[in-house]
Design a protein around this nucleic acid. Sequence first.
DNA 1: GCCTTATTGTGAACTTGTCAAAATAAGTGC
DNA 2: GCACTTATTTTGACAAGTTCACAATAAGGC
Lengths: 150, 150
Amino acid sequence: MHPSSEHTEWASALRAHGRRVTKQRLAVLDAVEAHPHSPADAILAAARDELPDITPQSVYVVLGDLTDLGMLRRFEPPHSPALYETRVGDNHHHAICSACGRVEDVDCAVGHAPCLTPSDTHGMTIMIADVTYVGICADCAAKGAPAPTA
Amino acid sequence: MHPSSEHTEWASALRAHGRRVTKQRLAVLDAVEAHPHSPADAILAAARDELPDITPQSVYVVLGDLTDLGMLRRFEPPHSPALYETRVGDNHHHAICSACGRVEDVDCAVGHAPCLTPSDTHGMTIMIADVTYVGICADCAAKGAPAPTA
DNA sequence: GCCTTATTGTGAACTTGTCAAAATAAGTGC
DNA sequence: GCACTTATTTTGACAAGTTCACAATAAGGC
């Protein structure tokens, strides 16, 4: 899974979605892969390691497009800019430390389609269940971090 | 449950939290109560029915403070400003129609503490589970609204 | 009623993200 | 390999939503 083979895989996926394979898209995909749960500005910084001249706007456009395509997943924690990751296709959830902001992936205990059967959806057809856990991570608890204001 | 009795209840709650009882706080609480799942600007408009001179900044300050106090609950759906409601204390979830944006409260099928036991929290102590369902409401489905892009 | 201090109002600024139009480059056919 | 077409990126401005510092006001205690 060295860079070039990842590039090959992503190039195929991009073509499969009818998209051209550009340095910018590959740089963004590499950046998100290397820094999961990162906001757009961190992805910009990471992408610039590979492609120094990429612009913020391109990162926004690429992230938005690839998210619509389903190649990236976006989630928006409270009081935080949107975060992106390459892990798509399962519907895992996220646990966020309210003290330090770290984010961990969480597989749902119920199986692969958690919480998609709430008691009463008022007639809605549910397509996505977005679950965010907020708590205190082990490191912050050890440092005596206070409970969040809620 | 006419306005004056609600005002009395809220006044008590505010005092219990060490807050002064102001027209602005009561107007915001009335507005949120009357318009659940509303963003700050809608709450401003509603609060002005009761207190025409209240300013946007006051609404933001009051909403933020009352949310920290636990008298209001805030949630932030994707691609939407923050929404507020007075229903707190249970951990109900929200279903959002991706076509028209309507929001419904959803009690979790599992009981009163849903999804608080994910499979692996990486050592985090979970305090809140924020669950958002996205789908198509019955009305929009009847009108033939398309499925969302993701 | 007066005083103290929390609260609100004023006005500006900031962050995140979006848009329109010009410049560039990926893919296609020759 | 070269030219062409059109997607993609860049440029630069802009917008929504929210927050901040500080002055003005008013709630609660005496």
